[in-house]
């Protein structure tokens, strides 16, 4: 149980995918303009991450059994791409408004490195946390944590950007430059969580 909480805290705060590992920057900058699209995108990413982990974890066991670990990347990308397409079809049918709001960013989850990252890191974690018996359940928890961390970063940044809209920004920094600077500051603020897992005695 302690280890589960440790995984959650790590995924959301100390090893936040967007702000500490710098994965999934494209949607982080692209869809964080409005709070509701940011939340919608994050929910889609969490869903895809969970689904992708659920499929790739057993798939990896198959690959290891046949000595095909070198195929990991290509097979995982294939699976993730197919999953995203399925999510897209389902969203188009049942949640048209979210489908319209996400627009191009939904197919872009396919190549969202955060999703591939979470899947591959989960596989790496099996050996890294073998002392804690890292298994399928742990993999699901840590991918949920990664998705929730992505959501936290998106929601926080949507707030920052709505303030930026009305801020008096120097002409040369208007638009993307000031957004990147703001992202860097938010990212630095997350350094403050360093050591929280060890400090709480969770690991």
């Amino acid at each position: 149980m302690k280890f589960m909480i440790a995984l959650l805290v790590m995924g959301i705060l100390t090893q936040n995918f967007t702000l500490a590992k710098f994965l999934g920057i494209c949607p982080f900058l692209g869809v964080s303009k409005k709070l509701n699209t940011a939340v919608g995108m994050s929910l889609a990413v969490i869903f895809v991450m969970l689904l992708a982990t659920a499929v790739t974890y057993p798939l990896n066991m198959f690959l290891e059994a046949h000595d095909l670990v070198y195929l990991q990347t290509i097979v995982f990308i294939l699976v993730i791409a197919a999953l995203v397409q399925m999510v897209e079809i389902v969203l188009k049918k049942y949640v048209k408004s979210l489908y319209n709001a996400l627009g191009i960013y939904l197919p872009l989850i396919t190549t969202n490195c955060a999703v591939l990252g979470v899947v591959i890191l989960n596989i790496d974690n099996i050996s890294a946390y073998s002392a804690y018996g890292f298994g399928f359940g742990h993999a699901m928890v840590s991918s949920f944590a990664a998705g929730a961390g992505f959501m936290l970063a998106m929601v926080l940044f949507a707030g920052v950007r709505s303030r930026l809209e009305t801020a008096d920004v120097p002409k040369s920094l208007e638009g993307l430059p000031i957004t990147l600077i703001a992202a860097a500051i938010v990212s630095m603020s997350f350094l403050g969580f360093t050591g929280i897992v060890e400090g709480m005695g969770l690991l």
Binding site: L71, I74, V79
Partner: peptide
């Protein structure tokens, strides 16, 4: 393996 996964995903 790769072809199988590809075909399966395509069919689905």
């Amino acid at each position: 393996t790769v072809a199988g996964i590809g075909i399966l995903a395509g069919l689905l």
